[in-house]
Structures are given as structure tokens and as C-alpha cells.
Simulated assay, not measured.
Amino acid sequence: MIYIGLTGWGDHPDVYQRSSSRDKLKDYASHFPVVELDASFYAIQSQRNMERWVNDTPNSFQFIVKAYQGMTGHQRGDIPFDSKEAMFQAFVQSLRPLIESGKLGMVLFQFPPWFDCQKAHVDYIRFCKERLEDLPLSIEFRNQTWYSDAFRDRTVSFLQKGDWIHSVCDEPQAGEGSIPIVPIATNNDATLVRFHGRNVHGWTRKGNEDNWREVRYLYEYNEQELLEWVHILKKIQRQSKDVYILFNNNSGGHAARNAKHLMQLLKIDYEDLASRQLDLF
């Protein structure tokens, strides 16, 4: 099965029917069966938030939860926990409503561009797996040394042995801080595909956080580019039972349109989405 969605549900005006910001997820879930939950990257979410999001979505809806930034090395300064173990425990506890409702698709560990292929980082990946061994975990690298000629085969083998879900990325090829398309499944159950756009000049641009994101993810895929991915996705689908696809080219409002276009090219019509009927009372 192929599940197509977007990263976050707050920046896609094409899918909203209701005026309240609290209803955005409900509207989103009437268009797509999966979403990336990125609020969990900035702060470990309360179970109350998770319960509300569970209640706002259909029974079959899936969340791909980004690992907290203190767990992936993005945190600036000290982590706001007594220990790494306490941080991981708090993160797991926050996921309980998703786990119990069957709506946790996976946890995504997206490591930063400086996280290169070296023994200390391989050991840290093992540490993460040990702390969350009962959960479906996906991994995304942003340093191309993991897929260099010297390490690519060993990287794939390492992920397979650890039962990690591979995050296959489409992104600008802009030096060491970007990775190539590696359409290989490392988990029999699932593979994650993330479309970041192909804005080469924006990918490495420096600046304040808001402006950086607006430029970096400003891209619209054309039909030929999506058609090329149809063939790649069919190859991946033969390697794992489910393929989860997320469009992250959000800043220009292109993600939802590109996702819908890919659904058309793949002839996908989801039947168990939320109703698009407005709530009148």
C-alpha cells in the first residue's frame, strides 16, 4: 500500500474548509491518510495534545512523528532533562495515545548535515534503537558520506540488520550536506520517501530560521519529475509492504498540489478519509 501525505498540517491552505485553526487537522485528514508530525521535533508533546490529534483523525490515519531535536543532535545547549535516558522515556510516554490507537506509523530520526559516517555516530544510532526498540523507527541522513562508494553498502546492511525503516529522499544535490536518491528498502514492512524539492540555491542558504525554511523548500515538481518517481516507487513497493510518501516542499504552497498530482499518476483513491462535510453544529 502507498500512503501519500504532507509534512505538517498547518501550512496548506488548499485543503482547509473551516476557518478555525483547530480544525486544520480535521480538514487535512479528509484529503490525506498520513501526516508528518513535526511539532514533536521542537518539544516533546503532551499526551493531551496527542489525544486531541488522535480524536481529530479517522481510525486508519497514520502519524509519522519526528524525533525530538535533543535526540537527533539538533539541540543547542543542554537538553532540558536530567539525562538522555529521561529524555527518551519522556518521548516514549508522549507517544502512548498514538500507540494505543494504532496511529503511530513510525518515528523519524532525521540527523543533521554534520552527522557523518563515523563510528561514534554508528554507535549513537545503536543507542537510539536500544532505547526505542519496540517502536517502528525510520532514519534520514543529511550527510552524503553514508552513501559514498566506501560506505553505501555497509550503511544499507547496517540499517537492514537494525530493522531501521529507510528514508529515501528527493532533494537538491548540493554537496556533502545532501544525499542522493537511494531507492532501497531496509525494512520489510515499510519504507519512507520524502520530497524536499530541488531548490539547489536555497538548500544551503544561511539566514534566520524562518527565512531559511521559506527559501529552502520553495519548489514545485513538474509532471516529468513525478513520472520518474512513479517508476522508482514501484521498485520500492516490491521491496516493502507499505510505502509512506511525504511532500516537504511547503513554503510556496506546492506540497498539496504535488501530492494530489502523484496520487493521480499512481491511480490512488483513498476510501477511508475523513468526511469533507462541514460540521454545522
Rank of each mutant, 00 (worst) to 15 (best):
H74Y: 13
L192A: 03
I179A: 12
K26L: 04
F127W: 14
H166F: 08
K161E: 15
G175Y: 01
K26Q: 08
Y219G: 08
H201Q: 15
Q118V: 12
I4V: 06
E51R: 12
P80Y: 02
H121S: 05
V243N: 11
F63N: 00
Q69P: 08
G202H: 07
E85Y: 06
F281N: 11
R18C: 02
R22D: 10
E228G: 12
M87N: 04
V15H: 03
P33I: 07
Y244H: 07
R213Y: 13
Q239S: 05
R238D: 14
S19E: 13
S19K: 11
W229D: 02
A174I: 12
F247P: 01
E271D: 12
F281Y: 11
G105H: 03
S240L: 05
N187K: 01
F63H: 04
I165Y: 00
L278N: 01
W9N: 03
T72A: 10
S167R: 01
D242G: 01
S240W: 08
V54H: 01
V107I: 10
S148A: 13
W114R: 15
V243K: 05
N248Y: 00
F247H: 02
F127E: 15
G197C: 02
G253A: 10
H12L: 09
W9T: 05
T155G: 12
G102H: 03
F91D: 04
F61H: 02
D11F: 06
D134K: 11
F111Y: 11
R126N: 15
Q110E: 03
L266D: 08
F32H: 08
K66S: 03
Q224L: 04
H31F: 08
S148H: 10
S178T: 03
I236T: 10
S94K: 09
I2W: 04
V182S: 09
S178M: 05
I4F: 02
S94G: 13
Q264L: 12
H196N: 11
R238I: 14
N208D: 14
L246K: 00
V215E: 02
K161N: 15
H121P: 07
D153N: 07
Q224F: 04
D189G: 05
S275R: 03
N250Q: 13
I232F: 07
D189S: 11
M87V: 05
D134W: 06
H166P: 12
A185V: 07
R154Q: 15
F88H: 09
K84F: 11
L132D: 09
N49Q: 13
F61D: 05
K24S: 06
S20K: 02
K267R: 13
H196L: 12
Q45M: 09
H261E: 14
D272S: 11
V107F: 01
D116S: 14
Q237F: 06
D189C: 03
E171Q: 14
A174W: 07
S83A: 04
E225Q: 10
V243F: 10
M1P: 04
G252H: 08
P13A: 01
D82A: 14
D210R: 15
D269K: 07
G253S: 11
G77F: 02
Y3A: 10
G252L: 06
V156F: 04
G77I: 03
N258R: 00
D163P: 00
F111V: 15
Q118F: 12
V243G: 11
D170K: 06
S30E: 00
E228I: 10
W53I: 01
G77V: 03
G70T: 02
D56H: 03
L95A: 05
D116Y: 03
A120P: 13
A120L: 14
N208K: 09
K235V: 14
T7S: 09
Q144W: 09
